[in-house]
């Protein structure tokens, strides 16, 4: 058992006033503006959270506030990426991590679907080739088809 488990501390919830350094509110306004733009003009916005001056707890408060919506996805490419829609439809949270689980990027995308989720044309072309190749070349062990 870790010694830290013995710490007799009750971590207050993210609603605790100490967690609020007042840096999330303006961001939420910005998100609202971006949503409006998405709704009216169809223009997507990406906010790089690493460029936002968060105090300790601010980020947690923001993420808690945004919550989890219906969709979440995990990407395995050069490390893990987690992508989920917040409870505010159109507001996506995209977190890229490296192979050693270090955070590479943390972004809010205000869009219908984050681009990273879509299959990339080059990959599609490549997979078409591969599939054709597979279909055309007879399998040695005959397991396929």
């Amino acid at each position: 058992m870790d010694a830290r488990d013995t710490i007799p501390i009750l971590i207050e919830t993210s609603a605790a006033t100490d967690g609020c350094f007042q840096n999330t509110r303006p961001l939420l306004h910005e998100i609202a503006h971006a949503l409006r733009r998405l709704q009216l003009e169809g223009v997507a916005t990406t906010l790089d959270l690493s460029a936002i001056p968060f105090g300790p707890g601010d980020e947690r408060q923001l993420i808690d506030f945004l919550g989890k919506g219906e969709v979440s996805a995990k990407l395995e490419a050069m490390g893990e990426s987690l992508i989920w829609e917040s409870r505010y439809a159109g507001v996506w949270i995209v977190e890229h991590r490296s192979t050693s689980s270090e955070r590479l990027a943390f972004q809010l995308e205000i869009t219908k679907l984050p681009a990273i989720l879509a299959s990339q044309p080059e990959d599609i072309a490549e997979s078409l080739l591969m599939l054709r190749e597979a279909l055309e070349s007879p399998q040695a062990d005959g397991t396929l088809v």
């Binding site: 830290r4 710490i7 501390i9 967690g19 350094f21 707890g57």
Partner: peptide, 13 residues
């Protein structure tokens, strides 16, 4: 332990 901007439980862990 009650402040987010000090050494608190999260920091200790």
């Amino acid at each position: 332990l009650n402040s987010d901007s000090a050494i608190n439980a999260k920091r200790l862990s």
